[in-house]
Design a protein around this nucleic acid. Sequence first.
DNA 1: TCTATCCGGAACTGCAGAGTTCCGTATATG
DNA 2: CATATACGGAACTCTGCAGTTCCGGATAGA
Lengths: 213, 213
Amino acid sequence: MTQLDSDQKAADDAPKLGRRRDPAKDQQILDAAVDVLAETGFDGMTIDMVAARAGAGKATVYRRWASKNELVLDAVACLKKTDLDSMPIPDTGTLRGDLVAMIRPPTIDDAERKLKVMAGLASMLSSAPDLAEAANEAIVEPRARINRMLLNRAVERGEISADVDIQLVSLISPSMVAYHSLIQRKPVDREFLITVIDGVILPAVGLRPAPAR
Amino acid sequence: MTQLDSDQKAADDAPKLGRRRDPAKDQQILDAAVDVLAETGFDGMTIDMVAARAGAGKATVYRRWASKNELVLDAVACLKKTDLDSMPIPDTGTLRGDLVAMIRPPTIDDAERKLKVMAGLASMLSSAPDLAEAANEAIVEPRARINRMLLNRAVERGEISADVDIQLVSLISPSMVAYHSLIQRKPVDREFLITVIDGVILPAVGLRPAPAR
DNA sequence: TCTATCCGGAACTGCAGAGTTCCGTATATG
DNA sequence: CATATACGGAACTCTGCAGTTCCGGATAGA
């Protein structure tokens, strides 16, 4: 989309002769951009940093993206694919079981990395709607979508009432984790996540913390 | 503290003759800094912008603060005093009544302004611990403190159980409001706040949404 | 092997903002 | 009224980064 090479027919622009553009380099640069973004934020990020981390030259970056803004937009969008949501979604038979099963190191690390990216973009979101949408779609939505799925299944099997505001409840953990991590700057560990599940989410859907006691 | 003029004995450094430094100007500059911070974020903020908005010269700003960083630190800290927490805290007799009574235009506007400041600082928080602490103390804590007070009163009058995790519950609304406003970029209106109170907070402390039905 | 193309890297321009210096003016004190 | 000081504003330096250009070397196809 924003990338320079995805021209009209996406073909025929490949050279008949000589060296071809390395497609793997694109991903290396995007990954490096996300790393730098997470570490320094949008304004702290320089193209030189990204190029150096990707083992590329600055010119190579600009051969593929027209500007820093477009690179960042693509890098954020690429987080979507990097997402761990392609992993199997737990189905333990109880809502609490499913929610607890979601607490795993790779899931937590992925979340923390994405939160850092979001923090690095925070000041831009109000002035760059397309970036805000990309960030929302790549960072916020995937996790909320999983939560909605788990909640819907709980409704279907009669575990919780159909009156529950699933949209609202699905945002409890993303909200509280983001606040805990970004603003309060405390580590997102298993204990905190369990506390949120048992102390907020389950009561909100009308369940007791301990499922069978 | 960070201000240049608060020297050793805080006295005798006033000139015997001639014009005195205008103390009101300090506050005008700090207010302007907060405004610009909320609108453009830390990196987008320039000293010229702040000076212009305060009706001052850039030199005047640097006569009072040694750097942009120190100005911002003081500006954030000054949000604490600007806070609306000097207003009367509601006491309606029920937790729900108190929470709903907190929903008032000045309270909401104050919160949104502070959230914008927090968004503008977000990318710096991980690399500037003192700024992070100042922001937390000026923006996060005052509101959480009120919530804790309301919850403690509810415990004292026997409305809710003493087992409730007050620390956790007091952070539900700040977290969800911040997420709603900053990340999802939706307006923080009365309807949303009521939904959070009735759909999350009250269930979390073991109360039904409609108190007397 | 030849050649068109891409590569990394370095040197370059242009600009914007932090921080400084200076000046003419305003003002409170004596 | 005289004077010492703070003021707003403009001009200045310096630094860092976005984006560009150029080059010698690497590489894949013909």
